[in-house]
Nucleic acid binder design. Sequence first.
DNA 1: TCTGGGGTCCTAGGACCC
DNA 2: TCTGGGGTCCTAGGACCC
Length: 416
Amino acid sequence: MRNRNIFHIDANSAYLSWEATWRLQHGESLDLRDVPSVVGGDPKSRHGIILAKSIPAKKYGIKTGETLYSARQKCPDLLIVPPNYELYMKCSNGMFDLLKEYSHLVQRYSVDECFLDYTESEKLFGSPLKTAYKIKNRIQEELGFTVNIGISHNKLLSKMASELEKPNKVHTLFSDEIASKMWTLPVDDLFMVGSKTLPKLKRIGISTIGDLAKANLSHMKSYLKSHGVLIWNYANGIDESPVREEDMVQKGVGNSTTIAFDVTNQREAYLILLSLTETVSMRLRKKKSLARVVSVSIKDKDFAYYSHQCALCAPTDSTNVLFKYVKKLFNEAWKGEPIRHLGVRLTELCSREFYQISIFDEKSLDKYRRIDETVDCLRRQYGKKSVIRGSFLHSGLKPIAGGVGEEEYKMMSSHL
DNA sequence: TCTGGGGTCCTAGGACCC
DNA sequence: TCTGGGGTCCTAGGACCC
């Protein structure tokens, strides 16, 4: 492949910076970024984990994903603010729109990360490094938060580059810089080397990215299968994946929720599953897709996780049809123990247009479809909670569960 | 006052077919 | 009385990402 120029743009401690920016713009004098602070969920509803941390909080050893309880022990004066996903979506959109000015090829990798293919833009905007600084400074001035930008010839290296020194920095990581800038790093700093792979690598004497790069490829392949080949390539800076257009095909939609209390009976489990089915099927219909596979997942009070799935005879987007399968799957899977978390996921998606004929085969399905369309329409106009099922009244449970913000947005994935 | 939510991809084993 | 081997599909579980 010819030489490309790829940028990776990463908002620095995104949720926290966005929260800080918003608060400053709304009259607060304290900048959350200057003190030990975190964005975190509510422990009362069993959502008490750290979603983002300030740099001062990081100095206390506080990590994303750890419990608020543990973070408070490390730093008793820690300032904790609740998340505001709609705000984060707006900030994310602002960053994305600004980036689109510099290339038609911008991939939204997650809420706070984008890849930008600068290859064709160079003749319009000049040198990559100059433009990267321009973008970084514009985001800071116009949107109020800082980003790191990594520049290289592929996505993997540009992503590794943006991780180098934070915040508010532009880094390059071209081929001749791999040895000095990347090989010296601990091997788990490499994209796709996680907590399970790290000890396996340590066991064979690999502790830096450079060790992995110089390891024997066929040895890695027999030891870690295809994943071994993948990370060996990454360690050597090899990655040919393209910056993908926004509208790539999504493979599935799912929603899940941790319940504030342990669910111990079928009736309550059904209500929560119904609320999740409502959310997930609305999202499916919004995408004008149908699903052919439904799966239900359960996490019990001890965090043991399992799931059960089945294929449908015909793809559908009907809340009622999907819920019928969800109930069946739940009954087949549930072992009867107290439940902490429930999830509903739809996969094997296809286009609605493509399958319309079989949907209208049955009169009852046609009726279901009209109900779904009407309810979706009302909810769009008057809000998600304008139409709810009678069964939720007085149940103490949320009629619509799952989802973080109002808008649909690309979340994360683990491949480039 | 303990541990979120939303994704993708890979693998292993069993069923089934020829 | 023996009992191959390749291919595909399905499901459950695990690893990784942010």
